[in-house]
Amino acid sequence: MGLLENWINKGRLKSPWVVHFDCGSCNGCDIEVLACLTPVFDVERFGIINVGNPKHADVLLVTGTVNHRNKKVLKNIYDQMPDPKAVIAIGACGTSGGVFRECYNVVGGVDQVIPVDVYVPGCPAKPDAIIDGVVTALDVVKAKLGLGEMPKVTVID
């Protein structure tokens, strides 16, 4: 592995840029994602920056259920992101469809459309849990680069 590649990978893992997509969420998880960026939780101290452009991003945060109209938008955003990338499904709706899974316009969780690496449960997920999800996603990216082991599945009761 060359020196340059080493250097790029280091930057990738030290300062992940995230793009947030609201995919039919009730806003509960959205405002918690935004709360992560603001002074009390302040993820920018870890080098995590929220960007608007999927082509700049390493990690995709998806909140909410997937419905028939936004699944195309979600797929599109995922395809635009450069490799290696990680997807985090936030909240009960993102992981499985939550309370809305039986609604007629709901496809289900995010994993019905794109591969998901980390699930953050909660209705809505707390900012602490979201930050933990991003940190876990970094291990996934690391494993995808062949620099570490894939994190084990952890279930917290």
């Binding site: 969420s25 959205d30 405002i31 259920t65 419905n67 936004n70 809305f100 609604c103 007629y104």
Partner: peptide, 26 residues
């Protein structure tokens, strides 16, 4: 963002609907 949660009233009982309508908007 359309989910169609008003139709859930036909599956969930009226006490459970309290928690559904809370999730109209977080």
């Amino acid at each position: 963002v359309h989910r169609g949660l008003e139709t859930l009233a036909s599956i969930r009982d009226y006490n459970q609907m309290v928690y559904i309508v809370e999730r109209v908007c977080g």
